[in-house]
Amino acid sequence: MNTTNAAISLRGLRKTYAGTPAVDGVDLDIDHGEVFALLGPNGAGKTTTVEILEGFRRRDGGEVSVLGTDPATADRTWQARIGIVLQNTGGHDELTVDEVIRHFAGYYPAARDADEVIHAVGLEDKRSTRVRHLSGGQRRRLDVALGILGRPELLFLDEPTTGFDPEARREFWDLIASLADDGTTILLTTHYLDEAEHLADRVGVIAGGRIVAVDAPARLGGREQDTAVVGWVDRGSRQEMATAEPARFIAGLSARFGGEVPGLTVSRPSLEDTYLRLIGASTRHDGPTEHLEHA
């Protein structure tokens, strides 16, 4: 891999809190224009890794390059090339959406047009509303607006759609897809695996301070080679069969039923199944993955 062209390059990244390693030797390359999702349970080192990349935290060891610069020594010019959407940010309660966005635009050398950004995040109706009166989802859209305002080459999104209703999430996904189409590199952390699957070119799973798998969502952890589960209905009861050769098995079923197979389904492990298997070794059952509804 050509690391000089990578938007983000990590080699042996380490960070220790009070003697306990939070990030324990992470290697990672993210290309320009790539949408990369970093997945992992709370406490796995996800936030620490991302905040080192954003320049908020100092590392204890390893090499870090973000847009060709070490974030620990980065200046305003570098800062202007990245966009950051943090979790749980508040503030500016008494200012209107319009005022906040126009003010933040003044920090950047070549900011996007404020109206264009307000339109992109769907806050036209709320532009004269004070931030205090916005709903949780609307505040999150404002956070995203401030993150993309400076035309970032690299955008960090930390759990961007928490608190969104399904429609708002779809609209947000479209927005991210259009930013990616324009060539913006995006590093996303999320607890929603469907979000990672929908948006990301590649996903990385971090557990216990280490990257345990990196691949395209469809191939993560050898998913595409996993056994398929064929399901059908026989004399009113649901049947299932795990098989490495689903096509051959279905052909057999079809012959048996003389054509169509009632209630036929073929499924592979979901990204969620694969994810839970990958992090399984390093998490307890009552641990931070409980927010995931495992069917």
Binding site: E54, G55, F56, R76, T77, Q79, A80, I82, I84, L86, N88, T89, G90, G91, H92, F104, Y107, Y108, P109, L146, G150
Partner: peptide, 11 residues
């Protein structure tokens, strides 16, 4: 409320 952190992440 992390206003300061947000500002620190801008130029």
């Amino acid at each position: 409320d992390r206003t300061l952190k947000r500002l620190r992440g801008t130029p």
